[in-house]
Nucleic acid binder design. Sequence first.
DNA 1: ACACGAGTTGCAAATTATGGAACTTTTGGA
DNA 2: TCCAAAAGTTCCATAATTTGCAACTCGTGT
Lengths: 255, 255
Amino acid sequence: MTTLASVAAVLRCFSEERTELTVTDVAALLPAPKSTVSRLLRAMRDTGFIESVGETKRYRPGVMLFEAGHIYRHASTLVERADEVVKAVSAQVGHSGYVSVRDGLDVVGLTYHAGSHVLRVATPIGRRLAAFASATGRTLLARLSDEEVRRLYPTLPTPPSPNAPQTVEELLVRLSQVRREGFAESNDEANRGVAAIAVAVGDPETREAVSLCVTFPAATITPGERNAILQGLLAGAKRISAILGDGRNHNTKTN
Amino acid sequence: MTTLASVAAVLRCFSEERTELTVTDVAALLPAPKSTVSRLLRAMRDTGFIESVGETKRYRPGVMLFEAGHIYRHASTLVERADEVVKAVSAQVGHSGYVSVRDGLDVVGLTYHAGSHVLRVATPIGRRLAAFASATGRTLLARLSDEEVRRLYPTLPTPPSPNAPQTVEELLVRLSQVRREGFAESNDEANRGVAAIAVAVGDPETREAVSLCVTFPAATITPGERNAILQGLLAGAKRISAILGDGRNHNTKTN
DNA sequence: ACACGAGTTGCAAATTATGGAACTTTTGGA
DNA sequence: TCCAAAAGTTCCATAATTTGCAACTCGTGT
């Protein structure tokens, strides 16, 4: 394992549930010998990747990562436009919305707008979900060919819920449906009692694709509300697509 | 230069003005031989520190940095509390506010609330300013002893404006004033026509310190508005200090 | 077609990282 | 307060990775 791979592995150990790490934590998580980890964390601290928490031997991400991450987030025209759409739809229907990107087998939330209704999901910003087991992820996977999807998923990871695809074949069927309908839905899949509608759009120049998503309570959503969400997202994605020249907008049906 | 130092140096080349980098860019900026840079960027891309922009040879920060940066930002109780204070004062007086931390000789903006008045400064999030030449920076430097400040500044960097301290001795005088008064002001210093008031507060457990700041147009601010800003920040900092046990709140005067 | 600039690759030498073991420091319980 | 255990650090020979020069490839513009 190269130094870079080690550093990346350490950074991936941080999460919202584990915002600080010790030598022993990292030694167990990587796994790697304590001596190696001790020196690695020291070097990471000295170069700004992590910082000590006060005078303790605990480490947390360094401000340099915040700065670079900020640039990541704010340099993308596509994300900006997608966020505007999601914000407007979210405000219109009163449910939470967010924008995600795919990173390998996962989707990562980049932006979030809390809804005004009582149902609040935890902020998805910086949070990872399995792409195959979420509406946002499936809209992004649907932009790949079946061959590309098969290569990405030689075998399917353990599905996190019974409503998620259970086999690669089922996933492909679901993706085919996303392509036909232009959007994906999830129901009681990533969060109990929560459903979501998602639409993807891309920027052919940067080869970026993002998923626009609104979540809502599965049990109490009205058909009118659901339709407003869907139309809002589809129309927004179409506008973005027209501006950026995606030409792969899946808005083929009005449902 | 170790691999880690090289990677950190590359990440610091990104900015809001330079969101993408090429091999040639980095070779000039570091500086380093093209061959070294080519392989370094390749390794960084392979491990998630950077991503290719579409099919081009340009690179930008990777989503992994966004994730780690998000954790940095949201793991801090102090930043959260400071942000609430700044948000409330900003909403009350209608001017922009933000929270900053010090990183070496710089301050970095972490949060931002745009004011409702016409004067909008560019978002300070992720942006660096010279600590000695900004109100936020001086509130944070004032928490150091004079000896620590002298060690940090053997010589003073070139002042970016005539209103900034011009010598280390002048800086120390200004910091002494901040300690006495409990806040710092800047006027036409970081941004033309813009003034700022800042108050610092810390968390003794994590040894964090943040600066709470509100900016406003230097020419049109009224004494009442200025006082509302100052009192709002000082009172908020005092509340935080009482909760976190800072005991170094500089709220020694009501002015 | 050609020149030039951007970027990549080969290879020997230089430099850095590793892991086991010994050591030091910190922590928690009696 | 003391002591054992756990956490963390450092030494050192070996292994692994990185480096920079030079040659090469690719893309672009005239």
